[in-house]
Design a binder for these strands. Structure first.
Length: 718
RNA sequence: GGGCGAUUAGCUCAGCUGGUUAGAGCGUCUGACUUACAUUCAGAAGGUCAGGGGUUCAAGUCCUCUAUCGCCCACCA
């Protein structure tokens, strides 16, 4: 599969090494198209005009090519031209590769300096004249331009041609040229003897594997990019004229090196030439492309080619995580090497993450200098904050535009975790928490709030697991964040605070924190470890503690829903209180009327919780009848809320609030009704959906009625 | 010349197989130094989901076209 030969390769004149196509990315350049006149040998007054973007290469021209179908040149094929400045005789040849529409339809052919021209040169047996030194100065084949830099030579040549009247015109032209990935110098297509790998045979199993789904890309869209590259794969130039790398294991006999037998592939240096017996053997000076070493990574890291337990165990691996630009360099090649050397794919999943860009959208890189230094972020915001924030803003391989403010959220969350943990540690009675949680699986022993937080935790755990498996790390992290902050801290800890020494509360707050830490640990390793050590002094590291087991028996979706509606009730009471500027420390009296028995008992069971959270002095559960006197009111779901108010009340203001809410709900109801009526909704929709829709409308209608009643009643009792 | 991504609240972005009144963080506004946390707490305001057309009982989500921005690939001299 490996061969050596002279071909046009990407040559960096600054690094003075060959490069693979992947190492010479094309970039657009604002250049010119130069039209040069090449006179006929038998009639120096007549010309063929050729167009080129690199006039300096004309010194190496060995033909001019035209399309055989091109009427303009039909009669000129086979005629001889005089190459200006060099005064070389060159022929006009025909080839269908020539695009009649580009330039003048006649193209100068420089077989040693252009890949297409190289092919033409081979095909038409033209001379290959290299006109440049390896550093892109013109060489001895360039006549008077010898030793001039390629761009200086370009200018000079153009001047000389203009002087001779051989420069027809110059047109602005955008072109794209390869640039050295390392130093950004414009690549010179250069004829050079290098080592290559034949890629077609290698690509076959690598294509199959992805097509058949043995290897999957996440996000899926990269599959197409991979397949497209693999299908159009070109042979790989693997020799480099640089110092660092694996030296090519090839030895030459100085005398015999031009023949195949004088080129010896060997792990160790041979004593003498197998052909002539000479002892003056020397090793190839070149090294291998770094990726030619790297593509062995999945198995070379496990002692391949020796067999080992590690190799058996770790090959193939499950997931490779990398950046999009690495797909061709590394991923594709590891897959090819995997099949070639191991007979098996090297990994199952390839997760391609996004690129970190600055606020202007430029890729962050050391060479551009637009990086945010991670160490700086760590100093300023913390290591976990850095990690957490990066994960939370990276959704499914989308690029991220990074600025420093992003890390505040991570820092704040770390702070929250720290403080909540501190609070729990401060109040923890150790003898109360060394119990197995499972004995409570039968529940009754636990009150609703404890059952609720356990249900929520295990629901969260399942969600985190699901999202990790789907490579949706941001979703996993956001779920952890909102659970801990907005459920565990905002509601659960606030509620149990009043009775924190209670044995059940102790156990549950401890267990939830402890399990939560383990779940969060992969995303915030340091702070979770620190808290963990304080929670289990002298115990093992959280790193080696098992991932929590999702205890399905604690999950109670109905309870979760019920508690949510209790919390909404509390929020609504706080809202009412806020709307009339009651001081927080002032306790208030609230009555509620539930429109269903179920809701009524739910509220009754949680009344002390409601009283505490809403800061109530008195709380009444009404059983219908008249509206309490001197009160403002609101509705939430199927509950009417009345806040007793003994001071002044701006009736107009209250009425207009109710009116606003009424019109808002009416709008929604109308829209729903219209949808239900307009089309024959009932005919084709699943019965469930229709029923749900109807219920929704019915509920809205009732709420609106209640609001109207409140509106009317508001003036009377006062 | 091909291919891909983006367009959703003032800003930065989530929204997985179409299904309650589209979410978060920041910012803004109102209130609170309530002994875990002011890197905090309790509330509020803010969106014709880039635009046109289509499929569907139902579209931010599917199809199609257009616009703007960005990226990748390609041997047009």
């Amino acid at each position: 599969l490996i061969y050596r030969g002279s071909y046009i390769i990407n040559w960096c004149p600054r690094c003075q090494t060959a490069l693979s196509d992947e190492e010479a990315p094309h970039k657009e350049l604002q250049g010119n198209l130069y039209y040069l006149k090449y006179p006929f040998k038998d009639n120096p007054k007549a010309f063929v005009i050729v167009a080129t973007t690199r006039p300096e290469t004309m010194l190496g021209d060995t033909a001019v090519a035209v399309n055989p179908k091109d009427k303009r040149y039909k009669n000129l094929i086979g005629k001889t031209l005089i190459l200006p400045l060099i005064e070389r005789e060159i022929k006009i040849i025909k080839d269908s590769i020539v695009d009649m529409k580009f330039g003048t339809g006649a193209v100068k052919v420089t077989p040693a300096h252009d890949p297409n021209d190289y092919l033409l040169g081979k095909k038409h047996k033209l001379d290959f004249i290299n006109v440049m030194h390896p550093d892109a100065r013109m060489n001895e084949s360039s006549g008077k331009y010898k030793d001039m830099d390629r761009f200086k030579a370009r200018e000079t040549i153009l001047e000389d041609l203009r002087e001779k009247g051989l420069l027809e015109k110059i047109e602005p032209h955008t072109l794209s040229a390869g640039h050295c990935y390392r130093c950004h110098t414009i690549i010179e297509p250069y004829l050079s003897k290098q080592w290559f790998v034949k890629m077609k045979p290698l690509s076959k199993p690598a294509l199959e594997a992805v097509k058949k789904g043995k290897i999957k890309f996440y996000p899926q869209r990269w599959t197409k990019v991979y397949l497209n590259w693999m299908e159009n794969i070109q042979d790989w130039c693997i020799s480099r004229q640089i110092w660092w790398g694996h030296r090519i294991p090839v030895y030459y006999c100085p005398k015999c090196q031009e023949s195949e037998a004088g080129v010896i592939v060997s792990r160790t240096k041979p004593d003498k030439c197998p052909v002539c017996g000479s002892g003056g053997i020397f090793q190839d000076e070149d090294v291998l492309d770094t990726w030619f070493s790297s593509w062995l990574w999945p198995f070379a890291t496990f002692y391949w080619p020796r067999s080992s337990e590690d190799l058996k165990y770790f090959y193939p691996t499950s997931t490779l995580v990398t950046a999009p630009e690495i797909i061709f360099f590394w991923v594709a090649r590891m897959i090819m090497a995997g099949f070639e050397f191991m007979g098996k794919e090297p990994f199952k999943d390839v997760y391609i993450h996004g690129t970190v860009r600055d606020v202007e959208g430029k890729k962050m890189s050391k060479s551009l200098g637009n990086i945010i230094d991670p160490l700086e972020i760590i100093n300023e915001y913390g290591t976990d904050a850095l990690r957490f924030s990066l994960i939370s803003i990276t959704s499914q391989g989308q690029d991220v535009f990074l600025s420093k403010e992003r890390f505040e959220q991570g820092r704040n969350f770390a702070n929250k975790v720290w403080n909540a943990s501190r609070f729990i540690l401060m109040n923890l009675d150790e003898d109360k928490v060394k119990k197995d949680l499972c004995q409570f699986a039968g529940q009754e022993d636990l009150n609703t709030i404890n059952r609720w937080i356990l249900s929520r935790f295990y629901s969260l755990l399942k969600e985190v697991e699901k999202n990790i498996c789907a490579y949706r790390f941001n979703e996993a992290v956001n779920a952890l964040y909102s659970f801990f902050w907005h459920e565990f801290c905002d509601w659960y800890l606030e509620i149990i605070k009043a009775d924190i020494k209670n044995t059940r509360n102790q156990l549950v707050m401890y267990k939830v924190l402890e399990k939560f830490l383990r779940t969060l640990h992969p995303f915030m390793p340091f702070i979770t470890e620190e808290v963990w050590q304080r929670l289990n002094p002298g115990g093992d590291s959280i790193m080696i503690s098992p991932w929590p087991h999702a205890q399905q028996q604690f999950i109670d979706k109905k309870l979760e829903k019920q508690m949510q509606s209790v919390f909404e009730l509390v929020t609504q009471i706080r809202n009412l209180r806020g709307s009339i500027d009651i001081k927080p420390e002032q306790e208030i009296e609230v009555s509620v009327y539930a429109h269903s028995k179920e809701k009524e008992s739910l509220i009754r069971n949680n009344s002390s919780l409601i009283i505490n959270l809403a800061g109530l002095k008195e709380f009444h559960l009404l059983d219908g009848g008249a509206r309490p006197r001197a009160s403002i009111s609101d509705v939430v779901e199927d509950v009417d809320i009345f806040l007793h108010f003994t001071g002044l009340l701006d009736i107009n203001k209250e009425q207009s609030k109710i009116k606003d809410k009424r019109s808002q709900l009416t709008k929604i109801r109308d829209a729903k009704e219209a949808r239900l009526k307009n089309r024959d909704f009932l005919k084709n929709a699943p019965e469930q959906i229709v029923e749900k829709e109807r219920q929704g409308i019915e509920e809205l209608a009732q709420t609106i009625k209640r609001l109207e009643r409140m509106f009317d009643e508001l003036k009377e009792p006062l």
